[in-house]
Design a protein around this nucleic acid. Structure first.
Length: 271
DNA sequence: TCTGGGGTCCTAGGACCC
DNA sequence: TCTGGGGTCCTAGGACCC
């Protein structure tokens, strides 16, 4: 990320090792789409060289006129790739790809589309029927994505919506001498992140998974946002007791916080 | 692949209010 | 009251992403 910053574009960091960069200002004066593309490819080569020289790592770079196309281009070149999708030919280029190449189409959606006879992006482009019956509110977006249209802006340091931690045991256990210390530790962990982010939480969630992979979540919301590990631990314990979740050995125990907001907003009535 | 961990977003039902 | 309609909040589960 530090190396990318030197290229002078806006950077949206997606994960530890992935980012979108808006470099459109760099190529605004390039005459025509073809010139802009070759300039962008040249910059991509520079980025890869720099990353290899400074970090001894390969990287895949995808170039396109929006996030969807850049991502597909990047996937297309993996590993160690550099690939650009020309804007003029985007809809035609996408036709050959499977529906699963589209961001947001995972295993389940791909299966649903496949059962309706839609296997490639071309199938989605050409489909005359209503996609809402298949994919609900994703229909409009899916149709636009299939033609390479994507208006999503880059997003920068968005606010945190939830904080959680979980742990899978090597052996399923209902031993309180294992579960209690772990839950305390997890409460410390999420409380630590909460305080580093200067937040408090109104909702505490417990997650358990049993040996048969059955996974349950139970949450509780409180009026006064909590901040401390002790408060979080106490609420987590009351959920576990209330719901009798530890009636058989656990494969996993997790603790999460949501309903995040500014801390220390308790009304002081002790005038 | 007998299945890790940290997130976001969506859906659906129910409680509750006006 | 054998009940309309719209809205908000809470809860649980699941799809998806990296």
């Amino acid at each position: 990320m530090a190396l990318l910053a030197d290229f002078g574009g806006a950077v949206e960091q997606v994960s530890v090792d992935e980012a979108y960069m808006d470099m459109s200002h760099r190529f605004a004066d390039a005459a025509g789409n073809g010139a802009a593309m070759s300039a962008a490819l040249e910059m991509g080569r520079e980025m890869k060289l720099l990353i290899r020289r400074e970090r001894h790592l390969t990287a895949s770079i995808g170039i396109g006129s929006n996030k969807l196309l850049a991502k597909i281009a990047s996937d297309h070149g993996k590993p160690d790739g550099l690939f650009a999708i020309e804007d003029a030919g985007r809809a035609a280029f996408l036709r050959t790809l499977p529906v699963s190449a589209i961001h947001g189409v995972g295993k389940v959606t791909a299966r649903i589309l496949g059962e309706a006879g839609l296997h490639t992006i071309a199938d989605v482009q050409d489909h005359a029927g209503d996609l809402r019956a298949l994919v609900g509110s994703f229909a409009g977006t899916l149709k636009r994505y299939a033609f390479g249209e994507d208006e999503r802006p880059l997003e920068f340091d968005g606010e945190i919506k939830s904080i959680s931690t979980e742990e899978t045991f090597e052996r399923d256990t209902e031993d309180r001498r294992i579960l209690v210390p772990l839950l305390r530790q997890q409460a410390e962990e999420v409380a630590g992140k909460l305080s580093r982010e200067r937040l408090a939480a109104r909702t505490i969630q417990i997650k358990v998974r049993y040996g048969d992979f059955t996974t349950l979540t139970r949450q509780t919301s409180v009026e006064e946002p909590v901040e401390s590990a002790a408060e979080i631990y106490g609420l987590a314990c009351s959920i576990l007791r209330r719901e009798r979740l530890v009636h058989r050995p656990l494969r996993l125990l997790g603790l999460g916080l949501s309903g995040l907001g500014p801390p220390g907003m308790q009304l002081r009535l002790d005038l």
